[in-house]
Design a protein around this nucleic acid. Structure first.
Lengths: 202, 202
DNA sequence: AAACATGTAGAACGATCTGTCTACATGCCC
DNA sequence: GGGCATGTAGACAGATCGTTCTACATGTTT
């Protein structure tokens, strides 16, 4: 499962890198602008006009590509879904390839992510907090994402008797929100280590 | 620390109970209405008009009590701060009083909270997701709240050598967001148990 | 009685939001 | 060349947002 992953686009700091925006067709330009803005400033806080500006597209073009903001939000989550998971897998793969244990690979990967300046928590948890109360479908998308993360963790750690994925997933999400609220990354990672070791020592 | 806590207002299900709204002065009526709406539907999603309606107050009165929505948001977080922590302490106290271990008391308390129909995650984490990117002060409030939760945990579990509070806090916040996204409460609690036991076995 | 604090209802302002519309330009296919 | 998909700029509609304002009522204090 973890083996056949194509390397995603990332630089040496493993930051998410957007493709050059000018060369892309309008639909993708819009999507990438939406991804940047929705993630950085929040979904509700981002107006259509801002996305139109940033993607260098006209309003008519925008609404010919996406029937509504709601549709764009779904597309954003879809896009983020694949983007994040493939980055996550590749980063774990690279770290284990460098000889790190599964636990250390996880810690390293998270630490790199939390340390990127763009880091603003989990796009899915944020969407759940922003929109979950009015749109239960969002919550289902979030659950699917976390389930996939959990299964990636299972193939990383191997399954002996019972799966550790769900418990690790819980710890990771705790770490994400703690890093998001501005707690020192080193402290967060210390707590992650303690928790992960505890789970694995079971 | 955990001993001298006055029992907060809660019923047998430990749901948060609001005082009767009619008898209160306008300032508190507004605050309680804001608490209900901000928590249930989100801060950005809740307009001033809705709060005015729900608190049975006129617009002038509202703006004489709170200079702006921003000021009300701070008051909401302050109010929630005390309300939640005192409920949390009291619930843990009651559970340990019934003979439960610290770990079981924690699990029971969380499970009860997650099972209330009003549960919509942590008000502070939600505020951070909604407003944190545009207002770093919010993040500081959230950190303070989590720090207090962490110290409550330390006095619950007692401190042997190193504090378990921060790691437990991380696990709890992971559990909160997992419950919020609609994962089955029993599954969440299972993962909490595994993680907490791991941390304590250190 | 006068002054004042405190409350009401609701109009109005200016900004911003999503979404639609008009009017026009360009390039491709038949 | 005609039709059509695809793009542009930007005005506009209709709703909602936070906030201010007018005009009036009530009860307390001086």
């Amino acid at each position: 499962m973890l083996a056949d992953v194509e390397r995603p686009v990332y630089n040496t700091l493993m930051k998410f890198v957007e493709p050059p925006i000018d060369s892309l067709p309008p639909r993708e330009r819009i999507l990438i602008a939406a991804h940047t803005l929705f993630y950085r400033e929040g979904i509700r806080a981002t107006g259509i006009d801002k996305i139109i500006d940033q993607s260098s597209v006209s309003k008519v073009t925008f609404y010919r590509q996406y029937a509504s903001k709601d549709e764009l939000i779904r597309a954003y989550l879809d896009y983020r879904y694949g983007k994040w998971i493939s980055w996550f897998k590749a980063s774990l793969l690279e770290a284990t390839g460098d000889g790190l244990s599964a636990a250390d690979a996880l810690v390293t990967t998270l630490k790199v992510w939390f340390s990127t300046p763009e880091f603003r928590g989990c796009a899915f948890l944020n969407a759940a907090a922003e929109l979950g109360s009015s749109d239960p479908e969002i919550l289902e998308i979030v659950r699917r994402h976390k389930q996939e993360m959990s299964s990636v963790l299972d193939s990383l750690f191997g399954i002996d008797a019972v799966s550790a994925g769900p418990a690790l997933s819980l710890v990771i999400d705790g770490a994400i929100v703690h890093a998001q609220m501005g707690q020192a990354v080193d402290e967060v990672m210390e707590n992650v280590k303690v928790s992960v070791e505890g789970i694995l020592r079971r």
